[in-house]
Every structure is written in structure tokens, then in C-alpha cells.
């Protein structure tokens, strides 16, 4: 069996305590919540944190609520909780689309929304979803709180703007009337995405007032198809424009080949799934 190397372990009792523990242990400390990304990496000895700060007891981070015109999802909210949250599904059906296909039901019982985002795995579903939703990530450090746009959170694969000692505490999704959908292709139930697309449309007066298009595992910069968004914004939500946006999204992403598929297929998927996600979102407007 695979087992992690030794590390020190501290259980945080509050956000302030977690931050002080992170400061105490320095850059070699890692936050652990669900552990479903970190612990397998540690078992494979690909990650060697010297200390783990366990935030599982921080009930203050485990809530989903509407506050100040935004859906606020605590970083410690489990995937299963987001999937079963009626308020989240009512405002943003895309969240349920995505959660339904993230890993499997048992992993979703343990894995957390914040953990997924902080892992910044290029194949992770929520990064594209929150980027498409233009969510804001609330980050707290010893010096106080800052808010980072989801689109600015991701620096690269497995890399975020979180500084040493900082903790993602919540995701805020501004509530505006929108339609949304997430479409994913995987090789098998529960597998990481071969590719997936997220679409969020704000429609006003027969025009796309704002649009968010996210791409998972397809080599899109910051998980977003910005050029496709630009094409759609301020025009009618027509099938032709969706098709052109899909073509643009495919042309601008830079997928890499792996055992899930070759580049040409993934590029094709980018277009195909953007079109499907846009149509699926608009289909919900009825």
C-alpha cells in the first residue's frame, strides 16, 4: 500500500488559528480539508509537506448562504453539499451540472469546493465553472482579507495566486439573472474530464448582456474562452453566433495530448462542448 511520508499535524480551531498555524510552520505547511487531492499526492510521495493544517473543524467555512446579492459558498463546503443545495441550484444550475460529474458520490462527501479550486488541477471542473460565473474568491491572511476574481486566481497548472500563509475562505458568486450549463466528456463515470465547457449567459432584451465561457482540461488560459465571450457579448443569442463562438474557443485553446485524447480531438471538443453548453444554457431560459 502507498503511505505518506511523516509530517506534523495541527487541527485548526478557527480561521485565525489556521492562519497563525500557517505562519508558524511556514511555506512547507499545507492546508488540508477533504484531502482527496493532497493525500494521494502525498502517498505517491509527489507532495512532501512538512506540516498539515487541518481546517475540517472550521464550521464558519462550511456554509452556503445568500449575502449581499451574492451566493456565498464557504471554502469547506463539501461537493455533496453544493450538489444538494437548493439555493445554489436555483440561481446557478451550472453548479449542479458540474457537481453531478465531479468524481463520485463518496469522494464528493469529503472533497471540498475550496480544495478543488486551490489544487488548480487543469482537469478540475469547478475552476472553469467559477471562472465562467465571474466569481470572486475571498482570501484571508494575517494582514486581512482580499478578494480575487476567479479569473485571476489561477496562475497556471497547480498554481494559484494564494501566497504562503493565506487561506481561501469563500467563493462569492454575484447573483444576476442568468442561464447556465456545464457539459463534460469523460472516458468513464467519475473520471477526470477529457474536456468540458461551462457557459453562463445574462440575457437582456434579446441580447447577450454578459457571457462567461469556461473550459476544463482543454488548455484555455485561466480556464476561460475570452475571445469567444467577446464575440457573443452584445449580440443576439443565435445558433449561428454560438457556432462561431465555439469555433473561436476551439481556435484559441491550447490543449495537450495525453491518454485522454490527442490535440485535434480536444480542440474539436472545445468547440463542440462550448456550442452544447451555450445551447444547453439558453435551453434553460424557457
Amino acid at each position: 500500500m502507498q503511505v505518506p511520508a511523516s509530517f506534523q499535524y495541527r487541527k485548526a480551531t478557527s480561521v485565525a488559528h489556521a492562519l497563525s498555524l500557517l505562519a508558524e510552520y511556514g511555506p512547507e505547511a499545507r492546508v488540508v480539508a477533504g484531502g482527496h487531492s493532497l493525500l494521494p499526492m502525498m502517498k505517491l510521495r509527489l507532495a512532501h509537506p512538512e506540516a498539515l493544517v487541518d481546517i475540517n473543524d472550521l464550521a464558519e467555512l462550511a456554509e452556503i448562504r445568500v449575502e449581499g446579492g451574492a451566493l456565498v459558498i464557504g471554502a469547506l463546503v463539501r461537493h455533496a453539499e453544493l450538489l444538494s443545495s437548493a439555493v445554489a441550484g436555483r440561481h446557478f444550475p451550472i453548479l449542479h451540472d458540474a457537481e453531478r460529474v465531479i468524481a463520485d458520490p463518496i469522494v464528493r462527501n469529503r472533497g471540498t469546493v475550496g480544495g478543488s479550486l486551490c489544487q488548480a488541477d487543469p482537469s478540475e471542473d469547478l475552476s472553469a465553472v467559477f471562472a465562467a460565473l465571474r466569481a470572486e474568491l475571498v482570501v484571508r491572511g494575517l494582514d486581512g482579507e482580499r478578494v480575487v476574481a476567479a479569473r485571476d486566481f489561477f496562475v497556471g497548472p497547480y498554481e494559484t495566486v494564494l501566497a504562503d500563509g493565506e487561506l481561501l475562505v469563500a467563493i462569492r458568486v454575484p447573483i444576476r439573472p442568468s442561464v447556465s450549463a456545464y457539459v463534460k466528456v469523460d472516458r468513464r463515470a467519475g473520471d477526470w474530464a477529457v474536456g468540458a465547457a461551462a457557459a453562463v449567459l445574462e440575457l437582456a432584451g434579446g441580447v447577450v448582456a454578459e457571457v462567461g465561457i469556461g473550459l476544463t482540461a482543454l488548455g484555455a488560459r485561466k480556464f476561460v474562452a475570452a475571445e469567444a465571450e467577446d464575440h457573443l457579448r452584445a449580440g443576439p443569442p443565435s445558433g449561428e453566433r454560438f457556432a462561431e463562438a465555439a469555433r473561436i474557443a476551439a481556435a484559441h485553446c491550447a490543449p495537450t495530448a495525453d491518454q485522454r485524447g490527442p490535440v485535434d480531438y480536444k480542440r474539436h471538443l472545445a468547440g463542440e462542448l462550448v456550442a452544447r453548453a451555450l445551447r444547453g444554457a439558453v435551453g434553460r431560459a424557457a
Binding site: R187, G261, P262
Partner: peptide, 15 residues
């Protein structure tokens, strides 16, 4: 016959 393999077969470029 993964999704990629099926799609490539349709394109006439089997994996």
C-alpha cells in the same frame, strides 16, 4: 473505444 478513439475513427485517422 474511448471517446477520442471513436471520434478519430470517424475522422478516418484511427488511434
Amino acid at each position: 473505444l474511448t471517446p477520442a478513439a471513436v471520434w478519430r475513427a470517424i475522422q478516418g485517422r484511427p488511434l
